[in-house]
């Protein structure tokens, strides 16, 4: 009994210590911002790795999610004789929820795991110690550009996902199922509010981008520098990111749309 309590306590303390290290790392990363701004090329290279290479999976998934929403939405809405509202349904679900959330999940799988593996392997192959011995701060030099690349890429990817999804829904609804084009766009414009829906969606995707990149970098930097350690860290990145995204999505939705 006491043993299990002690074990619980140890786990709790370990989690707290880990959280503390993660926050210290974030502070270190943010401190690197001025030196990164002097050399924007570093950031550029990372936006390529984090953003551009995630483009394909985001565009394809966005298209299919939009098309499925179009089909399912049409099926449900036509039962109430409200098929013209398909545009509203597709756009609202994408802009408010699916865009940021699904993009963040894909982003964690595509870019987050890659970041963790890269940083973890750099640690395992002594590249990070090597930088430190060359009097270059590995946090500022390696982690900061990756962090801001994630922060910048995520909202753009989410916007692309939503936009492509709306077009996919439009293709199914208007192109295949014969809903009136004007009604599709007109109802959408009437109901989707710029401040309430779009801005909140962008805020969500920013928060998710921050959290996913942060988790990925921390797990890589904190990984045990062995093959098994890096693979464990990569798994943890994906699992923790997914949980964080869904949990935060609930909280953010409650704050934004609940009140």
């Amino acid at each position: 009994m006491l043993d299990s309590l002690a074990r619980l306590g140890r786990v709790g303390l370990a989690i707290l210590a880990s959280l503390g290290r993660a926050h210290l790392l974030l502070v270190g990363i943010l401190r690197g911002l001025p030196s990164m701004l002097v050399r924007p090329r570093l950031l550029l290279a990372q936006i390529y790795g984090v953003g551009v290479l995630s483009l394909l999976i985001i565009v394809v998934s966005g298209l299919f999610v939009g098309m499925v929403l179009g089909l399912q939405g049409y099926y449900v809405l036509s039962q109430f004789g409200a098929a013209e509202s398909l545009g509203v349904m597709v756009a609202a679900s994408l802009v408010r929820e699916l865009g940021p959330v699904v993009t963040a999940l894909l982003f964690a799988g595509r870019a987050g795991s890659a970041l963790t593996a890269e940083i973890g392997l750099m640690k395992a192959t002594e590249q990070l110690s090597g930088l430190e011995m060359m009097a270059v701060d590995p946090v500022k030099r390696v982690l900061t550009p990756r962090f801001f690349a994630g922060l910048i890429s995520m909202p753009l990817l989410a916007a692309l996902f939503s936009a492509i999804g709306v077009i996919g829904g439009w293709f199914v609804g208007v192109g295949l199922l014969g809903i009136d084009d004007g009604a599709f766009w007109g109802q959408m414009q009437n109901k989707i509010d710029f401040d309430e829906d779009l801005v909140n969606g962008v805020i969500k995707s920013l928060v998710f981008g921050l959290v996913v990149t942060w988790i990925a970098l921390y797990e890589g930097y904190d990984a045990t520098p062995t093959s098994a350690g890096v693979s464990r860290a990569t798994t943890r990145t994906v699992v923790q990111s997914a949980l964080a995204i869904l949990g935060l999505d609930f909280i953010l939705t409650a704050l934004m749309f609940g009140g």
Partner: peptide, 12 residues
């Protein structure tokens, strides 16, 4: 100070 790591630690 210079340091030569066992693995070389070159930036890949």
């Amino acid at each position: 100070m210079g340091m030569l790591f066992q693995s070389g630690a070159l930036l890949t």
